[in-house]
Design a protein around this nucleic acid. Structure first.
Length: 646
RNA sequence: GCCGUUGUAGCUCAGUGGUAGAGCACUUCCUUGGUAAGGAAGAGGUCACGAGUUCAAAUCUCGUCAACGGCUCCA
């Protein structure tokens, strides 16, 4: 007998070799029906895999991430089985579960897959699932695995196996399909009741651009048809928050093929919103001792030869600008740092001058690969809310912490609650990608890790994600459909001060090198606005929104009064427009609600007589009539409340 | 850049080889109204662009451009 301990601390005795599924059955038939995955002593474990020693167990149902993971992983295998039956010559790469569903990378040879094949594949999957095929785990020696997959000419699988350690290799088999896999999986295919293949994409084998591109098939499955319908409906809803759609509807920004792809045009309302964000940040930065500067959009190529950017990115960038002068070569600036270094060098600096904090809304141009462009989140011309802090080494941590404070203020003011922090370090196995000595890198990386610890910030560490000149702390926020975008970034840099030969006189009257912090709390105005749109669905906070109120005259007879109200509000710095179209009031309300204007002010005979407006709040309906001055005061104080909370 | 999908009026979309369509938006007229779509008329398109097949191409083929979903990249 063995002892199985449950999460609540209780335990029961079972015969050795009991499976988690049998444990579930012993508790209740209902649980046995709902359970999809398990863990034994914290290790993911198949429901049908025997347990032979005293253990603690956890049983997972659909709502647990572990259960979904097993479910979708088994679904990936199910799809592979269907593909194998439909396309016998297909070769398999990898097929994991992901955040929403799963994918499988396959090589279909010279017979390309089309999304018109999806219906067939889905049908086959459901057919196989309904056969309630058992999914069987098997431990296998490396030699046997190589033979098994080698005989079937699974070149991708054999490549993976050749890198595995003998004795750790397992396969899972259902029906006629066997896959190299660690698991865990469902005991059989029958819980998979609803299947939807979502997309086809090319994906390089092992993520390497130089290797063959396989076909990646994305899919999702559910234990109930209704759950699939709900998921698809949710996706449809999310698409309504797409910043590209709302940006067009609300006339915030546009693109023109005549201008060139990835080069956004900011329309009047979008510009108003963006300017307000810039003012907001300037105000906070002023509080933190920053000084605004401005630098040109182009500079001599030598600047970026010095910084190292030309060597690293030059051939993949917008190409140099020539002039009538021979040998005079300019670059569009892809970043602002060299200019800021040059500003630092305009005067001899004392240790007493530091830290110097130079801030600039700097518009930069980067030749992003065409396939990378995406609305406002990935563009070729964008404005960084950039700043560079030049400080003494002993000031580094404090300065870093203060930048974190700015980022938290901003995320808090704009209600970005679900951000993720990522410490991006260099890849220790690939050091030639980076400039600077090991010592400098270690110092920089330590500074970031310690700063996060000090703030109690739970940051994920990613190797190989650093900039080539230094490690960074990035803040990521998800868009409407769950894609992660990097917004704020803070980077520690000992290298550029070296390359630009920056120095200051220390208290010892010797020359010293300052340390540089690059930082951009928004990241870029473009991307930030994009993510803000998706988070708010276009319903911006009152202080930020382009039009705070719209005045709706009941009939054209009251257009003059409406204009008078607009003027009065304008004098109180309230942004109001007048809808003087020849339309009925119901129509004006509808149209302006859809434009997401926070306050609709209806004016007719009564209001004109009394100097009032009838207030209707976006999404909340009629709020009754008030004097124009009272409304203005209320709006002003609401804005004031929002702003002072920064 | 690579794989896949898409491109018809300002917007959303019908239109499978035989004279370019609808709704909304727009213009004009009627209507002058009280809290989410009043009525009528009108205007608007080189069917992304370029070649080809055909008596005939929005429709079939090829190429280019752009957008969309991914991959790779992201100073």
């Amino acid at each position: 007998m063995i002892k199985i301990t449950f999460p609540d601390g209780s335990n029961r005795e079972y015969a050795a070799g009991v499976t988690p599924l049998q444990v579930a059955e012993s508790i209740s038939p209902r649980l046995a029906q709902d359970v999809l995955a398990a863990s034994i002593n914290g290790e993911e474990w198949d429901l049908s895999r025997p347990v032979n020693a005293d253990s603690s167990i956890k049983l997972f149902k659909w709502d647990d991430a572990e259960a979904k993971h097993a479910f979708w992983h088994s679904s990936a295998h199910l799809m592979a089985e269907a593909l194998q039956e439909l396309y016998p010559h297909i070769k398999f790469g990898i097929g994991p579960a992901i955040e929403n569903g799963f994918y499988y990378d396959v090589d279909s040879g010279d017979q390309p897959l089309r999304d018109s094949d999806f219906a067939n594949i889905e049908k086959k999957m459901l057919e196989l699932a309904a056969q309630k095929q058992e999914i069987v785990r098997q431990e296998i020696s490396k030699a046997d695995a190589l033979k098994l997959f080698g005989d079937r000419n699974e070149i991708y699988k054999t490549e993976l196996i050749s890198e595995l350690e003998d004795g750790t290799i397992t396969t899972y088999t259902q029906g006629s399909f066997t896959d190299l896999c660690r698991g865990p999986h469902l005991p059989n295919t029958s819980p998979i009741k609803a299947v939807k293949l979502m997309a086809l994409a090319g994906a390089y084998w092992r993520g390497d651009e130089k290797r063959k591109q396989l076909t990646r098939i994305y899919g999702i499955t559910f234990p109930k048809k209704k759950m699939l319908d709900e998921y698809l409906a949710l996706l449809e809803e999310a698409k309504k928050r797409d910043h590209r759609k709302i940006g067009k509807e609300l006339e915030l920004f546009a693109f023109s093929e005549a201008v060139g792809k990835g080069l956004p045009l900011w329309l009047p309302k979008g510009t108003a919103l963006r300017s307000r964000l810039e003012e907001f940040l300037k105000r906070i930065q002023k509080r933190f001792g920053y000084q605004q500067i401005m630098t040109p959009h182009i500079g001599l190529k030598g600047l970026w030869e010095t910084s190292g950017h030309w060597a690293k990115y030059g051939k993949d960038s917008f190409q140099p600008i020539l002039t009538p002068e021979e040998d005079e070569v300019f670059l569009m600036k892809p970043m602002n740092c060299p200019f800021h270094c040059e500003i630092y060098k305009t005067a001899p600096r004392s240790y007493k001058d530091l830290p110097l904090r130079y801030a600039e809304f700097g518009t930069v141009y980067r030749y992003e690969q065409s396939g990378e462009l995406h609305g406002l989140t990935r563009v070729r011309g964008f404005t960084q809310d950039d700043a560079h802090i030049f400080c003494r080494p002993d000031q580094l941590k404090e300065e870093f912490l203060k930048v974190m404070d700015i980022i938290f203020i901003i995320f808090n003011a704009l209600d970005f609650k679900n951000f993720e922090a990522q410490i991006s370090l260099r890849d220790p196995n690939n050091k030639e990608k980076y400039i600077g000595s090991d010592e400098v890198w270690e110092k920089s990386e330590r500074a970031i890790v310690e700063a996060c610890q000090e703030k109690g910030l739970n940051a994920r560490v990613e190797l190989g994600e650093a900039a080539f000149y230094g490690p960074k702390l990035d803040f990521m926020v998800k868009d409407a459909i769950g894609r992660r975008w990097q917004l704020g970034t803070i980077q520690v840099d000992y290298n550029l001060p070296e390359r630009f030969e920056l120095e200051y006189n220390g208290s010892d009257n010797q020359k010293h090198r300052p340390v540089m912090i690059h930082r951009a709390p928004f990241g870029s105005m473009e991307r930030f606005v994009a993510v803000l749109i998706e988070h708010t669905g276009g319903k911006f906070p009152l202080w930020l929104t382009p039009d705070q109120a719209v005045i709706l005259p009941i009939s054209e007879k009251f257009n003059d009064y409406a204009q008078q109200v607009a003027n009065e509000l304008a004098q109180q710095d309230i942004r109001a427009i007048v809808d003087d179209r020849n339309e009925k009031i119901g129509r004006k309300i509808r149209d302006n609600e859809l434009k997401r204007i926070p306050y609709l002010l209806i004016v007719g005979e009564k209001e004109a007589e009394n100097g009032e407006v009838s207030v209707r709040k976006q999404g909340e309906g009629d709020k009754g009539s008030v004097k124009v001055a009272d409304f203005a005061a209320e709006i002003s104080s609401e804005v004031e409340r929002q702003i002072t909370s920064w």
